[in-house]
């Protein structure tokens, strides 16, 4: 690890702004800046991804690194910053990791088929409020990878389960429901993520506070798909 001095940091600066300041000073001195991922800086894109003092996205609950402010630290603190560490997330440079494994899990089944052509009228498919709420809670996942980073097993279960829950609760997600569970879980294994021991660290680290209830749903869909040939899911998964 390399230690950098970050003086003159205001309490209202975000963590990423602090890194910007550090980088500016490095560049002024002709040194190479620290590479880190960021984009929206408002907690919606899932780009930022830092392990701060051994905690994914730092000490505040329900916030991404970009939403973390320097007031969460004491003046003079030494803060350790690391990239997500997982075999499935190879390091590109410094603090930047390649989260392409998540894209491939999505490609394996994180979609629905929908008719093209003119848009359908709104409200033609009625969905109960409870179902929508649960699906939308899961849909908040921004695929940042904090769940993997925080998991002792480096498991992508919370990510995969969020997508499965979101799509499989809604009527539009039904046709692919069981094939989706099989294929996404299989891809998760292919990418060398670990299994789920239900430590619960992921839901604590998740900037969107997604519940491990989603993992229960994923396991249920996977088990149903495996045990029932009726859905033809196994054939389609192969």
């Amino acid at each position: 690890m390399v230690e950098y001095d970050a003086g003159d940091i205001g309490p209202d600066m975000s963590f990423l702004e602090m890194l910007d300041v550090v980088n500016e000073r490095l560049m002024e001195r002709g040194e190479v800046p620290i590479a880190f991922d960021h984009d929206c800086r408002e907690g919606i894109c899932g780009s930022c991804s830092l392990m701060i003092n051994g905690v994914a996205h730092g000490p505040e609950r329900g916030t991404a690194t970009c939403q973390l402010h320097m007031r969460s630290f004491a003046d003079g603190d030494t803060i350790s910053v690391e990239p997500w560490r997982a075999r499935a997330f190879p390091i590109v440079k410094d603090l930047v990791v390649d989260r392409g494994a998540f894209d491939r899990i999505i490609q394996a089944g994180g979609y629905i088929t929908a008719p093209t052509g003119s848009a359908r009228d709104a409200n033609t498919i009625l969905i109960s409020k409870d179902t929508v709420d649960t699906a939308m809670d899961a849909a908040q996942c921004i695929a940042c990878g904090a769940c993997v980073a925080a998991c002792p097993n480096g498991s992508a279960s919370l990510f995969t389960a969020s997508k499965i829950t979101h799509l499989s609760l809604l009527p539009q997600g039904q046709p692919e429901r069981y094939g989706r569970a099989l294929r996404m879980v299989a891809q998760m294994d292919i990418e060398h993520f670990g299994g789920c021991t239900l430590y619960g660290e992921c839901q604590e680290a998740c900037p969107k506070e997604i519940s491990i209830d989603t993992i229960t749903r994923m396991n249920r869909d996977f088990l149903r798909a495996t045990l029932s040939q009726g859905h033809g899911a196994i054939a389609r998964a192969e």
Partner: peptide
């Protein structure tokens, strides 16, 4: 599964990984 979990993180966190939610029983 233990082996899988260990292989999934070949490089450990230098500053450690602070557990939050997991119970002693889980760990």
């Amino acid at each position: 599964l233990t082996g899988r979990g260990q292989e999934a993180r070949p490089v450990a966190y230098a500053a450690g990984r602070r557990p939050h939610a997991s119970t002693l029983a889980a760990r």
